[in-house]
Design a protein around this nucleic acid. Structure first.
Lengths: 156, 156
DNA sequence: GTATTTGCAAAGAATTTGCAGTTAT
DNA sequence: ATAACTGCAAATTCTTTGCAAATAC
């Protein structure tokens, strides 16, 4: 029997959104599903190529744009010119702490932040739509302080 | 007597930073000093040209980059591809609410936000460096709600 | 079958840069 | 005097697009 790769999480979403599933889209969907970081188009292209050589950057650009429009992906800008992407996480939003020394990205949650900004939007006479929040910091040398709560992981 | 234009605020900063004050820099510094919005390079170039025709876009790009490196200017990204600039404000930081319907930008302050993020950085084992915070919203129809506190102004 | 999607290479948009000439200090 | 600055046009970088061939449904 053939170990036919199971439908990736993002592939499912594509189908639910009525997208035509071509081979290249399936590969890109899989790459995105398996990514736990914030790859840019170049990187997605590289990863996709290693799974299937019949893919062009143009298609990656087109796919990524399409998926963003469908709300399946979110575009990020951590500085450095190129857009980064990550799968939309339903519910619990998270934000990013960028280590200014090496560009590494740490995700964290903070329900308070969104609450605060919802109230601020309201006070300014606006309906909250979304929040972009990026924290830049330098790693502390060493400290006797406790663990690192709310931390979700460190990636790129 | 000649009404020699007084040294603009940003020109002063340039001098303090030991920058060579050429005619074009003086003009750009003045444009920046007088701006109360968030112009992109194109717009800065347009405004500079209207004061003095001997300026090229390349110089605007170079100047804006230089001033950013010196910490005199801050680069913003409100989406839309081009970088926007505004003079660094010492002390009371402010953030931006972008009206998703028309791109207009409203500045607001919120000491709580920075406090919250300082604590978060600390908990994650980082030294707070800076915070990028942008709120996206839609103007509410009309409401019986009170005034708009903390509001600093609406620009572009 | 047919409307979509793809690859390729060319086009665009924003920003940077090499170089020869100009200028502030 | 001379190191820094400028304009110009060419080069870079990221992203989009036109078109003919390929493909999903």
């Amino acid at each position: 029997m053939k170990a036919q790769a199971a439908e990736s999480r993002i592939e499912q979403l594509c189908v639910e959104h009525g997208l035509k599933m071509t081979g290249q889209r399936r590969v890109i969907a899989r790459v995105l599903s398996e990514a736990d970081d914030h790859p840019d188009v170049e990187e997605l292209y590289r990863r996709a190529l290693s799974l299937d050589s019949r893919i062009s950057v143009a298609t990656v650009y087109r796919t990524v744009r399409l998926l963003e429009e469908k709300g399946i992906l979110e575009r990020r800008d951590f500085g450095g010119g190129r857009a980064r992407y990550e799968a939309t996480e339903h519910g619990h939003h998270h934000y990013h702490l960028i280590d200014v020394d090496n560009g590494r990205v740490i995700e964290f949650e903070d329900p308070e932040a969104e609450e605060l900004m919802r109230r601020m939007a309201d006070r300014l006479g606006f309906e909250f739509v979304s929040l972009r929040l990026e924290l830049f910091g330098k790693k502390k040398k060493q400290s006797a302080s406790a663990a690192t709560p709310h931390r979700k992981g460190e990636t790129t």
